[in-house]
Amino acid sequence: RNFRSADVHSKDFPTNMAVKFMGDELSKETGGKDNIKVFGDSALGSEKDTVEQVKIGAIDMVRVSLASFNGIVPESMIPSFPFIFRDLAHFRKAIYGAEGDKILAAFDKAGFVGLAMYESGSRSMYAKKPIKTVADMKGLKIRVQPSDLAVAMVTAMGASPAPMPMAEVYSGLKTGLVDAAENNIPSYEEAKHYESAGVFSETMHVMTPEVVVFSKKVWDTLTPAEQVALRKSAKASVAYYVTLWDAKEKEAKAAVLKGGAKIVPASEIDKASFVTAEKPVWDKFATTPELKALVQEVVNVK
């Protein structure tokens, strides 16, 4: 079969390239029996729409931000906790390792099969001025994604969260409707936010990964061999994705610098001040003993 997979990014974005790669691997594994057709550009709907379609079995797979599952799979919130990862190495070890597998396994009870997670860089603050300590955040109007976790995170920093759709952020920054926003470098570049918020401070506060999810309804109709092949090709796509993503980040960084943006490197950020402010947020969202244990496990990864 030709599994249909949805994505909101354009066809040549790393997530889409990686799922296509996964399809090629799957085709090899199954002797040409199965493959994956990627529908990019939100053609089948928003992240929320397509997650629901996967659940109901209208489409077979989807690649979305893990944040899209926050209201569905509580475990999916953990990688989005502010400063839960010390650095990229820590993230990779946990998410591409046993802890990541535990989070993916949690999708099962919500009617999904979690196949793989991909990194999406780290989100950092950008504004007209540098943000080096949590004190610099005081009173700033920060655009956040419309999610409880993002609102709580920005509030804990002493700033005032202004949830608004991504499409309105460019003019919002330009006109001063919001003072700052936060995202990873490729989005900062692609949405041209550097034109009006020219200082990108590497606060690296959140490292929400992407996730590739399969429909449980469809999954249960597959042969065990197909299921194994799907899992195997999903895992195989991670390394391929990481190469593409690394290149994308480097390219984006060069482009924003060329566009006149200034980058405040992570070494100049008083990270400790942020971490102290954000600890209460973890407790607010890790409400059950199981979630608390998993948080601890992620933190303990050396």
């Binding site: 409880d148 609102v151 005032s160 969260p161 202004a162 949830p163």
Partner: peptide, 12 residues
């Protein structure tokens, strides 16, 4: 948001 710098998150 504009006058009190306190955007209610639930509006949307």
């Amino acid at each position: 948001r504009y006058a009190f710098n306190d955007a209610p998150p639930y509006v949307e």
